[in-house]
Structures are given as structure tokens and as C-alpha cells.
């Protein structure tokens, strides 16, 4: 029981991070129908930007952790968004009307570029960061098990919830959200009725990258160590989450993220940690076989 509660907490934390990345995949897929393969690496870039921004802030004397974190959040989100925007502008926009595989291959290329760029610029070794936020609450403490809820975990989940709330509001209520939903329905029609499609797509990438940056910061705080390769695995899992939840659906992305996070932590706890990724990927395959459009995805009626 104690293990269960502890793993539930850990799983939700991890799932929140996956969910934030998954939103980037699901939005881009919803609007232009491509797998933005470089998105995982944008997340990795976000984590690096956060790390360097933090060190730079410390170097210039900003040592108060809450203030530093707030500034890091702003800087990392802004600069990662710039990366998201640039990737779209350079590698995807020229391929908007190209054939279907082209953007995917281009995205794989961009993913390789980002990974190697960071590796060259910052070195291949892992980057450790001492824990910035310490402490937490002990929920259960009998003699055998201690169930802890750390402050970092609270921060991760609360931030994710807050961002989700803001984001849902943007989609549901703002002009931008309406444009995005219009583009998702029909790109050509949207442009005919006066939606600036290029701008909307750019903003989609910007928002996705900003959320990925937040996930990067969370990863940095939660694990305290990053390297240039974290983007691939996190990206694949987040995409899995997006597909699991039903690609194109925002609540689906979050739900999928949580499921993947929970599957991973519970599998590690009860079976073996080596096979946690195997479990996550197997569940993806199984779910797709029985629910080909994911859990919250709209069923597709075959038009003939």
C-alpha cells in the first residue's frame, strides 16, 4: 500500500512532465498532421537553456531561489520558443506543400542537428545540478516504509496544472485558440476565411516549445542531471503519450502522459526497472490495436 502511494506520487510527477511535452506533439500533429520529431530535442534544448540561465544568474548574483527560478522559467521559455519557431521556419515551412514523408525526414534531420549542436556546444558529458528545492512532506511513516511528497513534486504538478488551465483557456477563449481550432479542421478553408495560417502554425510551434521548456526545467529540477541525449527517449515517450491519449486531443495528451508516467513507475516498482520502457511501448502497441485512434481521439469514419 505504501509503495503504491509512493509510486502514484512519482508516476503523476513523471506523467506531468511527459504530458507537457506531449502537448507539443499533439498540437502540431493536429494542425499540420506531421510528427515533429525534433520536439523531444527542443525539450532537451529547453533543459540546457534553463541550466545555463540558472548558472548565469547565480554568476551575476541572483541567488534567491524563487526569484532565480522565476527568471529561469521566463528565459528558458522565451529562448526555447525561439528554437521552436526557428525549426519550423527553417525545416518545415518550406515543405508545407511537399510530399508527406518530407517533413518527417526533415524533422529527423533537425533532431540530429539539435542533438549534435548541443553536444558540440556544451560537451557530451552529463550536467549535474545540485537540488535547488529541498524538503517535502512525509505522508506516511511506519517503520517499514516512508512515503514522501517532495516540494519539487508539488511544484511540478502544480505548475503543470496551472499551465494546462491557462492553455485550455487560450484554446477555448482567445482569437489564437479559435484560429488554431480552425486550422485543425481545415487548413485551406481556414486561410480562405482569413486566418493567417503561417502565423498560427508558427505560434503553435512556439507554444509547444514553451511548454517543452517548462518540462525541461522540471526534468532538471526533478532529476538534477541532464545530457544532450535526453530528448530522444523523452520525445518518443511523450509522442507515445500523445498517441495513447488520442493524437490531436489536448486532454488526451495530458491523460496519455499520466498513463505513461504511471505505467513506467509502477512497472519499475513491481517488476523490473530495466523493462519499464518496454512496458510503456508495449502498452502503446496494445492500445493502438484495440483503440486505433487512442483513448480520447475521434474515431475516423472511412470516407469512400
Amino acid at each position: 500500500m505504501e509503495i503504491f502511494v509512493q509510486q502514484l506520487i512519482n508516476g503523476i510527477t513523471l506523467g506531468s512532465i511527459y504530458g507537457l511535452i506531449a502537448i507539443g506533439y499533439t498540437m502540431v500533429y493536429g494542425i499540420i498532421g506531421m510528427i515533429n520529431f525534433a520536439h523531444g530535442d527542443v525539450f532537451m534544448v529547453g533543459a540546457f537553456l534553463a541550466l545555463i540561465a540558472f548558472l548565469a544568474l547565480v554568476a551575476i548574483g541572483v541567488t534567491a531561489v524563487p526569484l532565480a527560478l522565476f527568471l529561469v522559467l521566463l528565459i528558458a521559455m522565451a529562448l526555447t520558443s525561439l528554437y521552436g519557431w526557428t525549426v519550423e521556419r527553417l525545416a518545415y515551412r518550406p515543405l508545407r506543400h511537399s510530399f508527406r514523408l518530407a517533413p518527417l525526414i526533415s524533422a529527423i534531420g533537425m533532431s540530429i542537428v539539435l542533438q549534435n549542436y548541443v553536444q558540440i556546444a556544451q560537451g557530451a558529458r552529463v550536467k549535474p545540478l545540485p537540488p535547488l528545492i529541498q524538503g517535502g512532506y512525509t505522508l506516511i511513516d511506519n517503520d517499514v516504509f516512508i512515503v514522501r511528497l517532495s516540494n519539487v513534486q508539488i511544484l511540478v504538478v502544480v505548475t503543470t496544472l496551472a499551465l494546462m488551465a491557462v492553455f485550455s483557456w487560450v484554446i477555448a477563449r482567445t482569437r489564437l485558440g479559435r484560429d488554431m481550432r480552425a486550422c485543425e479542421q481545415d487548413l485551406k478553408m481556414a486561410s480562405l476565411v482569413g486566418v493567417d495560417v503561417d502565423r498560427t502554425i508558427s505560434l503553435t510551434f512556439v507554444i509547444g516549445a514553451a511548454l517543452a521548456a517548462v518540462a525541461g526545467i522540471m526534468t532538471l529540477l526533478y532529476y538534477g542531471v541532464i545530457d544532450f541525449y535526453i530528448g530522444f527517449v523523452a520525445g518518443v515517450k511523450a509522442f507515445t503519450a500523445a498517441v495513447l491519449g488520442g493524437i490531436g486531443s489536448l486532454p488526451g495528451a495530458m491523460l496519455g502522459g499520466l498513463l505513461i508516467g504511471l505505467i513506467e513507475t509502477f512497472w519499475s516498482a513491481y517488476f523490473s526497472s530495466e523493462y519499464k520502457d518496454v512496458a510503456a511501448f508495449s502498452i502503446l502497441i496494445i492500445v493502438l490495436i484495440f483503440l486505433p485512434t487512442g483513448i480520447l481521439g475521434r474515431p475516423e469514419i472511412e470516407k469512400v
Binding site: 510528427i35 507515445t240 518496454v278 502503446l284
Partner: peptide, 28 residues
């Protein structure tokens, strides 16, 4: 057998997952 009725990118991601599963099993 199970995945070929999936379409487009779903198939892509499932094959990717399958490749990773094989590699992880070989590793572990």
C-alpha cells in the same frame, strides 16, 4: 499482423516503438 491496419503515422510510431523494444530487450 496486429499493427498493419493502423494508418500513416500510427504505423510509423508503432514500428519505432517495436524497434526500441527489440533493442531494450537485447540490452537487458
Amino acid at each position: 499482423f496486429p499493427v498493419l491496419r493502423l494508418r500513416g503515422d500510427y504505423l510509423a510510431i508503432v514500428t519505432l516503438a517495436f524497434g526500441e523494444i527489440i533493442r531494450l530487450v537485447l540490452t537487458n
